[in-house]
Amino acid sequence: MNWDIFITCAVTGSGLTADRSEHIPITPKQIADSAIEAARAGAAIAHIHVRDPATGAPSRDPALYREVVQRVRDSETDVVLNLTAGMGGDLVLGGTDCPLPLDPAKTDMAGSDERLAHVAELLPEICTLDCGSMNFAEGDYVMTNTPAMLRAMARRVQTLGVRPEIEVFDTGHLVLAKQLVSEGLIDDPVMIQLCMGIPYGAPNDMATLQAMVQNLPAGCVFSAFSIGRMQLPYVAMAALAGGNVRVGLEDNIWLNRGVKATNGQLVERAATTLRAMGARLLGPAEVRRKLRLRNPAVQGAVA
């Protein structure tokens, strides 16, 4: 059991959920406001994607990230910002009978510098590093993160002084994560996010979670979450496994059966569960010390 826990709120994600709930934030203002709401509800970290304001589709436009980050910082809300660097690894085959050429409308493959352009400009305290490739849900989509790409991105993030959060979707991703650590590309403390229940990665049963936890890099700080209806039960499961917690509309749009959630409500539910278990919630300042975060963009963030 982890008795001192931080909550991450994954505010909007890149999934096709914008038409499934009126609470999914789409514009930079909505995303920033939702991150602030989550922070006030008890989230120490806000994990940020951006979307095309006109369509709600996922985007990696640095200008959209710039507006979100500026709005959060201007609000003087104390929250650790964690920007995704996962966009730009989307490979979609042309079909089962003719996989090549790739689907040009859906494929978005970018180089390491381009995938990190917003991170290099905005210097958040944390950014994500999806530590592997996988068949991600249905169809011909492959989430693509080669070892060479990950080494290049890890090296760049390390140079920038940003803490990478290593996103792990299966046990093989942990093998690669440990390899990056052994090569000196990930600084201590290593930060891992166990992403459970996502087709076709690690299932979210307790035995698989335990196996993942037992194979973590020694001394790392980790969180765990699951998607959909298992998100809120995983608040307790992650804590019992010794980890920290992630909730948010990126992974689940429901508070109760038939009741759509806001990010603030999901964080409040997680905080209530954890406090009822006897855990203490860490605030942003304590998280900065725990993770030894340093952010050249924010004076005083070095702990």
Rank of each mutant, 00 (worst) to 15 (best):
E114A: 15
E114P: 05
R115D: 07
A117Q: 06
H118G: 02
V119A: 15
V119I: 13
A120Q: 12
A120K: 10
A120T: 15
L122R: 12
L123Y: 09
P124W: 09
T128M: 07
T128D: 03
T128G: 07
G132P: 02
G132E: 06
G132I: 02
S133P: 02
S133G: 12
M134G: 11
M134N: 07
F136H: 15
F136A: 10
F136K: 12
A137H: 08
A137E: 14
E138Y: 13
Y141N: 04
V142T: 11
T144C: 05
N145M: 12
T146W: 02
A148Q: 10
A148E: 13
M149P: 00
M149H: 10
L150C: 05
R151I: 11
A152V: 02
M153W: 02
M153H: 02
R155W: 04
R156H: 15
V157G: 01
Q158E: 13
P164M: 09
P164G: 05
P164L: 09
E165L: 15
E167C: 04
E167M: 11
V168F: 03
F169H: 14
F169L: 08
G172A: 12
G172N: 12
L174C: 11
Q179M: 11
Q179K: 05
L180Y: 04
L180I: 01
V181P: 04
S182K: 12
S182E: 11
L185Q: 05
L185P: 01
D188F: 00
M191P: 02
I192L: 03
Q193A: 13
Q193N: 15
L194P: 03
C195Q: 13
I198D: 03
I198T: 10
P199G: 08
Y200S: 13
Y200E: 08
Y200L: 10
Y200F: 14
Y200G: 12
G201I: 07
G201K: 05
G201L: 11
G201C: 06
G201R: 07
A202P: 02
A202W: 01
N204D: 15
N204Q: 12
N204Y: 13
N204E: 09
D205R: 02
A207D: 06
A207L: 08
A207F: 02
M212V: 10
M212D: 01
V213P: 06
Q214N: 07
N215D: 07
L216Q: 03
L216Y: 14
L216P: 00
P217W: 06
A218E: 13
G219I: 03
C220Y: 06
C220E: 08
C220D: 08
F225C: 06
F225P: 01
F225K: 00
S226L: 07
S226N: 01
S226D: 04
S226C: 08
S226P: 01
I227F: 05
G228H: 04
R229F: 12
R229I: 05
R229N: 12
P233F: 05
P233S: 06
V235R: 10
V235W: 01
A236W: 06
A236T: 08
A236N: 06
M237A: 13
A238D: 00
A238E: 01
A238I: 04
L240R: 06
